[in-house]
Design a protein around this nucleic acid. Structure first.
Length: 515
DNA sequence: GTAGGGTTAG
């Protein structure tokens, strides 16, 4: 409500416009701006910039641009607001166009552009931006560091992440605050160096619930269940109240560690001790917890007892466990529910098809694939990446774009030869007889993680750890193959898949073949 | 003045 009894000044109008922007109240904002114009404040810089922000936040970037173009003094601050208007709506190229025209860019402007690229999934361009910023002699601050670390964590760029960490340590005035500390823990955990994540965590003087959540989920991701639970308990001892996110993290740790009773105790403590109502993701953790250890009937009954409808992730956890524990009947019941509901994404289709295929029900598997085709549902392309000499190398299925492709495929063939001699037969050869043609192509092609690993083998020093990041789950065949590769090459191979880490060493994997 | 860490379960 606008109180019309008092005549507002420019400060009042600025703060009301700001509030309208935060609440996406476009109509009210326009009204306030109209008032400002009537009061002769239409060309006030602060008010004009707030109007741009308002338009931007409400998705009206064309209007924001018109205001921007009319501004007499289009300095770095106004340009940064315009850049953010575009970046919030994914218009990266338009943002860059404005950015390029800024004559003297400051830290905020560089950081906004870098962060916008990260938020729009353009990690490599974000890192390029960071390098360009340093060439331009603009000093990064804490915010810049957090953005760059976020890009590193998503890319799995451990080398660069380490470089950023050491840059901070060299008296560049970067403080290890909550944000920077959290970003570092997240970066190390997600880049596969959980020990270093723990070291940063231990070094931090002050930790908040987010710091703890990051550490707990990092430990859980690496299969360090006991440490994750201890960290959770340590947080409570410190008097920090857990949030709903903390519970997902710690329940996830319980399920990876097979700690059913403790998991239930923690689950019950949510409402009892902290007044946090479980959400679908917490129920999902409980289903996962029961299913993993093979208590499938209990998991099934648990799902049925819920007042809310199960989602694909929850059913996926159950289905995946049915496949591993060889309980097709319960799995099929759930599968039917999934298909009938008709809202199934590509990964669940793939999982369903694999469940059928694993028990030799080829017709059913083929039907699922046909349904996918019918509905025009495409499997998300698998993509693996590896960082070598500060550069991220990306590989798709059967990728031949890499400049060193000959060497990579030669290495792959060499490994296949050794594996065959060791008596290893790829699971795909068995599968091939009973699946559809298009699937054969996929099965025959070379999965991206193998290419990334082979590139790692030829381009890094012997005995060093190879770290690969994959956007999807690792398939069974690749998983067993990587175990053997780790053994014969005497390398540690760390693979981050969509959900967790696999540390391959000397023929076995830290996930205990259950993922 | 403009920019910052967790979306977690398959």
């Amino acid at each position: 409500m606008i109180d019309r009894s008092i005549v507002p000044d420019k400060y009042v109008i600025t703060s009301v416009l700001k509030a309208c922007g935060s609440n996406l109240a476009l109509r009210e904002g326009k009204e306030v701006h109209g008032q400002a114009v009537k009061l002769g404040l239409g060309s006030n810089r602060l008010i004009t910039m707030k109007l741009m922000e308002l338009y931007g936040k409400c998705g009206e970037f064309d209007f924001a641009r018109k205001v921007f173009d009319k501004m007499v003094e289009r300095d770095v601050v106004a340009s940064t607001i315009m850049i953010n208007c575009y970046l919030d709506y994914g218009l990266v190229e338009q943002a860059i166009e404005v950015f390029d025209q800024v004559w003297i860019k400051d830290t905020v402007c560089w950081t906004a552009m870098t962060d916008g690229l990260v938020k729009n999934g353009e990690m490599n361009r974000a890192l390029e931006m960071f390098r360009a910023m340093q060439k331009d002699n603009v000093r990064p601050n804490e915010v810049t560091i957090v953005c760059v670390l976020s890009a590193c964590s998503q890319l799995g760029a451990l080398e660069l992440g380490r470089w950023v960490h050491s840059y901070m340590g060299k008296k560049h005035g970067i403080e290890l605050n909550h944000f920077v500390g959290g970003a570092l823990i997240n970066m190390y955990a997600r880049c596969g160096d959980i020990d270093e994540a723990e070291r940063v965590f231990a070094m931090m003087k002050e930790r908040n619930v987010i710091t703890y959540n990051l550490m707990i989920s990092g430990l859980a991701m690496h299969g360090k269940s006991v440490e994750a639970i201890e960290t959770f308990q340590g947080m409570i001892k410190q008097g920090i109240l857990p949030t709903s996110v903390s519970f997902v993290a710690v329940l996830n740790a319980c399920s990876h560690g097979g700690l059913v009773d403790l998991g239930f105790e923690i689950f019950h403590s949510m409402t009892r001790d902290y007044g946090i109502e479980p959400q679908i993701e917490h129920y999902g953790c409980m289903v996962d917890l029961l299913s993993r250890v093979g208590r499938l009937q209990e998991a099934y009954d648990f799902i049925r007892s819920l007042k809310i409808a199960p989602d694909q992730v929850m059913l996926g956890a159950f289905l995946s466990a049915c496949k591993i524990h060889g309980n097709l009947e319960l799995g099929e019941q759930i599968a039917r529910t999934l298909i009938n509901d008709g809202v199934v994404d590509s990964s669940t289709y793939v999982l369903l098809s694999n469940v059928y295929a694993s028990s030799g029900k080829w017709n059913e598997a083929a039907q699922i694939r046909a349904k996918m085709k019918e509905g025009g549902i495409q499997k998300e392309p698998g993509c693996s990446s590896i960082e070598v000499n500060n550069e991220i190398h990306e590989f798709l299925l059967g990728d031949i774009r890499h400049p060193q492709k000959e060497k990579i495929y030669k290495k792959l063939e060499e490994l296949n030869q050794i594996l065959r001699e060791e008596g290893y037969t790829p699971a795909t050869e068995v599968v091939l007889h009973d699946i559809e043609d298009w699937e054969k192509e996929h099965a025959l092609a070379i999965h991206s993680e193998r290419l990334a690993i082979c590139y790692g083998l030829i381009s890094t020093r012997p005995c060093t750890t190879i770290r690969v990041v994959k956007n999807l789950r690792v398939c069974d065949d690749c998983h067993s193959m990587i175990k053997l590769i780790a053994k014969i090459t005497r390398r540690k191979i760390v693979v981050r898949d969509r959900k967790r880490f696999h540390h391959f060493e000397n023929g076995s994997c830290s996930c205990g073949d259950f993922w």
